[in-house]
């Protein structure tokens, strides 16, 4: 197995073409005695318009990295540029501004049971400066995700896949340039999972969005332009899909993904 040290593998792309640029990022959880490093010297570039999949064993730090890129935590050191703004040292209030440009998709859909599908999506639209047409926007994106006949349903009346698509609609409705997804298909059956990923791929390709998706689901790896692997808090490999498939025969892959 070939493992290229991360820094040397980073192509020298100009800043404008980069959605996320990470340099020498370390991250610790806990204080004092309990202080534990979970991310070690991460270097990673996400070029605009690319779909990057991150895999790796459980507990390796994938979600942690995602929350840092997503401006969900304060970042103490290193360099982390998201959509042109360095978020290292930013306060909570500035982080909120960064977050408004990011679409988040979680394993749990986290929809409000009290709101209809459209209303859940509208909550996102209301963050935009002009939301007078929020209903129309919400219906449009839900239609695009194949939910035109479910816009006024409450989450209770939707299937798991439908709920996940509502959550995706909510993440995408403001057309964020960056989308961060953490195991978006984990709660879905094979077919729904596939549909959801295909939709995300279409949106990324047709509208030039950058997507970083954490997944254990090797059935969907084919949508990726690039696959990065996290092991024990380090980016272990960073390669394009062809290379990944060539160098990982399915059995090895399965073992790496699921034994741990």
């Amino acid at each position: 197995m070939t493992t290229t040290p991360a820094p040397s593998s980073i192509p020298a792309l100009p800043d404008e073409a980069i959605a996320v640029r990470i340099r020498n990022l370390n991250y610790f959880f806990g204080q004092g005695e309990l202080r534990k490093q979970v991310l070690f010297d991460i270097n990673l570039d996400l070029p605009k318009g690319e779909i990057v999949i991150m895999t790796g064993p459980s507990g390796s730090g994938k979600t942690t990295l995602l929350t840092l890129i997503g401006a969900l935590r304060t970042v103490p050191d290193g360099s982390l540029k998201v959509l042109g703004r360095d978020i290292v040292g930013m306060g909570r209030s500035q982080l909120v501004d960064v977050r408004r440009n990011i679409g988040f998709i979680f394993q749990a859909h986290n929809l409000f049971d009290s709101l209809s599908a459209a209303q859940n999506v509208e909550m996102a639209v209301e963050l935009a400066p002009n939301w007078r047409e929020k209903r129309r926007q919400a219906v449009a994106i839900l239609t695009q995700l194949g939910l035109s006949d479910r816009v006024d349903y409450k989450p209770k009346a939707l299937s798991g896949g439908q709920k996940q698509r509502v959550a995706i609609a909510r993440a995408l409705v403001n057309q964020p340039p960056l989308i961060l997804a953490d195991e978006p298909t984990a709660a879905l059956d094979k077919k729904s999972g596939r549909d959801v990923v295909t939709l995300m791929q279409q949106l990324a390709k047709s509208e030039g969005r950058t997507i970083l998706m954490v997944t254990h689901d090797n059935r969907i790896l084919d949508v990726a332009d690039r696959i990065v692997t996290m092991v024990d808090g380090r980016l272990d490999s960073d390669e394009n899909l062809g290379h990944f498939v060539d160098t990982h025969d399915p059995k090895t892959l399965d073992r790496r993904m699921f034994i741990l």
Binding site: G70, L72, S93, V96, D97, R99, R100, F104, F106, A108, N110, L111, F112, M123, A124, L127, R170
Partner: peptide, 15 residues
């Protein structure tokens, strides 16, 4: 019972 949803709103950019 809505803590996850409220956290989601924060992640989306609500203050």
């Amino acid at each position: 019972s809505h803590l996850k949803q409220y956290a989601t709103l924060k992640a989306m950019g609500y203050r």
